[in-house]
Every structure is written in structure tokens, then in C-alpha cells.
Amino acid sequence: MITYIVRRIMMAIPLLFGITILSFGIIQIAPGDPTALMIDPMIRDKDLVAYKELYGLNDPIYVQYLKWVGNMIQGNFGDSLIRQGVAVNELIMARLPNTLLLMLVSTILAIFISIPIGIISATKQNSLADYTFTFFSFLGIATPNFWIGLVLIMFLSVHLGWFPTGGVATLNEPFSIWDRIHHLILPSIVLATADVAGLTRYIRSSMLDVLKQDFIRTARAKGFKQKKVVYKHALRNGLIPVITIFGLMLPSFIGGSVVVEKIFGWPGIGMLFFDAAFQRDYPVIMAITVIASALVVIGNLLADILYAIFDPRIEY
């Protein structure tokens, strides 16, 4: 088991290395640099030379890459080109906790909603409940995320005033847990929607597979009560594949946070990334793609390890 984990971790290292090359490479083909945003007749191009030199924008590409990777290994993503004098690390640390919080809450939400629905759909296959849930999960898959968000803001926040229109906390008010939760509700619901829909479908089919298997039939034949069979045997075996699915859904989950953060003005790395892309703030763009991809790699690593722990059939 331990050797398996170590092997998986070792495999992740070249992966991360490849990610840095791709992140860096994409940026290199980009025309324009942050000085495009400094159009002002009172600023002349020749006066921006000093700025470009200061940030090493005139170095050869491989020098830029080596400098960047070298610093990154030491945990330093360099300085922002736009927010001069501010380290990328600082910008990311100010945002990452918000994104992680949002993702954690919506993951929990997604799991707690989709597991019972998936189970009910599978155990009561072709019932009215199954059809209803199926209908709504397809609806959830096919509806653009931002659309749900905008509609919720319009009706629940602007019209009814039940929820704040965005942000993480009320301005000019002292910190309160309830206030933070209040701000979290809508964004996490929207972020969870697409995943709930997808997860429900997976859990349903995974459970259906298990329910058809011999050992469940045997258990039933032995006279176990339906409920006990479902929860004790089928659940365990039916949910294991979901761990992997979850790992696979992680990239789109993180990507989805860009949209949700933009809708709700949620100050996370998704918003930071979006602004940085428009401002050509390359160090920030590269840092976030690397961090987000690393999160995916780590997520998948965890999923694999969890899978190994939960699935007794796998041997090492």
C-alpha cells in the first residue's frame, strides 16, 4: 500500500513539471504585454522600457522560464506585473482560502444531495421519484451555470432581498459567522448544481450495477431486509467508483469556480485569474494555472488512494 502511494506521488512529479512547461509555453505565444493597458499620451513607449527591464520582459525565453521555475521551486511565484511591488504569492494567498471554502462547501453540498437522490433513483428504478430526479439532473446538466446564478441573484437577492447580491461579507459590519454563511449560500448552490446533476447520474448507474450483482442477490435471497442490503452492501460497493468520478470532475469544478466567482463577485482565484488574463499579468496567470492543475493532480492522487483504501478487491 505504502509503495503504491509513493509510486503514485513519484508519478505526479513529471506531471507537474509538464504542467509548468505548458503554462509557460502558452503565455509565450501571447501577443502584447501589460503595457497595452497603459495607453496614455502622457506615457511614452520609451518610458516603459525601464518597467519592462525591471520585470525581465526583455530576457530570452528560456532564461525567463528557468528563472521562473527556479523561484517557483522555492515557493516564490514572482511579482505581479500589474500590482507592482506585490508578490504573486500574496495575491494568491489572499484569494485561495475563499475559493477553497467555496469549493469545500459546494462539494459537501453536492455529496449530501446527490448520494440520497442517486440511491433512491437506483433502488426505486423507474418510479415516479426516479423519473423526477432524472429529469431534474438532466436539466441541471444542460442549463448554463451562469444562467442559474443570474436568475437566483435577480429573484432571491434583488427582488426578495433574502440573500446578499455578492461578495463574502457585508461591508462596514463586524465579522459574524452568520453573515459569512449567508454570503456563501447562493454561490455554493450554483457551483454544486452541475456536479449534483452529474454525480446523481453516476451514483444511480453505479448502484444499479451493484444491485444486479450476485452477492446482492444472494444477500436478498438469504432473507436480508431490503434496506439493510442496500445500505450495508450495495452502498459500499456502489459508491467506490464515485470517488474516481469525483477526481475526474475536479478540473471542471475548479474551472466552474471562475464563472461562479464572477457572478457573485466572490474574491477567489477564479476572479483573480480572469482579471489577470485580461490584464496580461503573466506571473499571476501562470501561477494560478500551475496551482489549479496541482490541485487537480493532488485531488486525483487522493481519489486513487481513497479508492485503494476502500476497495478491498485491489491488492498491492
Partner: peptide, 15 residues
Amino acid sequence: KMVPDANALMAQLQA
């Protein structure tokens, strides 16, 4: 206060 876009801004004005 930084808001994500003009539509969010209008929503916040209204609220």
C-alpha cells in the same frame, strides 16, 4: 468596492 461587471453593479445599486 470592486464588482465583477456592470450587471452586478446595477443589481447592487438596486439592492
